[in-house]
């Protein structure tokens, strides 16, 4: 690891200024992913701007929306009474991720900035278009058991990336119609959560739509009628502290047995948290039964394709959708 320049920011503006002027500078908050990547030589920013002292930790009920400061810790959000009451799906997803210690360090903004856990990305001696553009995708003809089944548009070899986004929290946020507040050199803007992360396209090295120097300051989540019937289902290789093979965030607004509103998103299946709006449409107005859920799962799976080691996801994903919806409705 190079001995980078370290700067401590005292205001969002000074933080942005600190990064803006230097294309290779980066913000550091919890550091739980960035430091890992730096240790393995995957990234080597010569300048880090520490944003931990910025006043961006508050969690507030603003009436129709809940605002979560970007520096709120994962554990703080997961344990917050407001979140437990109004957004239990988010709390569940947070607690399904990482470990208690990491949740005590990782911030909400940092969680969004997590990079993929694809092993080819993580080993500088192996090909990876995300890490080393043009070097090829190691996973596509390699060990791809953990990899994507959605969002795989045909692209030339030098752009191929079948990595998945690793976050659990982001799957819940994608389902819950969150928006991301961003401050940057060009002013402040708001990004719908589902537009925050991106598909690899011809730029697999880019995980999201942030511009250089832009700082996530907060998340805003609309209050909703989905709190009573929601479930985050995570299927993994061990019972805790493992990345998802498949995860599903499901939330329903039920009137009697009839579905009024539905939110559905998956993790472990695409380069970004995978919102399933078409499947949601299938659910609306229908009774909350297994048959309905199966129909939605079938719609959800349209366009999925698998590789040598992840064909199981074509079966596991719809099964997980049905299971998550069943538990949400229950």
């Amino acid at each position: 690891m190079i001995n980078f320049q370290y700067l401590r920011a005292s205001s969002p503006k000074s933080a942005i200024d600190g990064v803006r002027t230097d294309l290779s500078a980066q913000f550091i908050a919890g550091g739980t992913n960035l430091i890992d990547l730096m240790k393995r030589g995957i990234t080597a920013p010569p300048k880090l701007v520490d944003i931990n002292n910025l006043p961006l930790r508050d969690i507030a009920d603003e009436g129709k929306t809940i605002r979560i400061g970007a520096l709120a810790l994962n554990s703080t959000v997961a344990d917050h009474s407001l979140i437990l009451k109004k957004l239990p799906l988010l709390a569940q997803a947070l607690n399904a991720g990482a470990s208690a210690q990491i949740r005590n360090m990782a911030t909400v903004g940092g969680n969004m900035m997590q990079r993929t856990r694809c092993p080819y990305f993580y080993d500088p001696s192996l090909p990876c278009n995300k890490r080393a553009p043009g070097s090829g995708c190691g996973a596509v003809a390699g060990i791809n058991r953990m990899h994507a089944i959605f969002g795989l548009e045909p692209v030339p070899d030098q752009h191929v990336c079948i990595a998945v986004h690793p976050s659990d929290m982001c799957v819940a946020l994608a389902a819950l119609d969150a928006t991301v507040e961003v401050w940057g050199p060009g002013g402040n803007r708001t990004i719908p959560f589902t537009g925050f992360h991106r598909l690899p396209g011809s730029n697999p090295q880019k995980d999201n739509t942030l511009q250089h120097g832009e700082l996530i300051t907060a998340l805003r989540l609309p209050d909703n009628a989905l709190a009573t019937h929601s479930h985050y289902l995570k299927i993994r290789d061990r019972a805790s502290y493992a990345f998802a093979l498949i995860s599903v965030a499901a939330a329903l607004d039920l009137k009697g047995k009839t579905i009024q509103q539905a939110r559905l998103a998956m993790g472990g299946v695409a380069h970004k948290p995978w919102r399933l709006t078409e499947a949601e449409q299938v659910l609306i107005g229908k009774p909350a039964t297994e048959a309905t859920f199966r129909e939605a799962a079938q719609v959800a799976m349209r366009g999925a394709r698998a590789f040598e080691h992840n064909t199981y996801k074509l079966k596991l994903a719809p099964a997980a959708i049905v299971e998550a919806l069943t538990r949400a409705a229950g």
């Binding site: 370290y6 550091i28 919890g30 550091g31 430091i35 890992d36 520490d50 210690q101 005590n104 360090m105």
Partner: peptide, 15 residues
């Protein structure tokens, strides 16, 4: 007072 992983944090971040 909070349990934390000391390997994933730089010392300078704890002034």
């Amino acid at each position: 007072g909070r349990r934390t992983l000391s390997c994933l944090t730089f010392a300078v971040m704890h002034e």
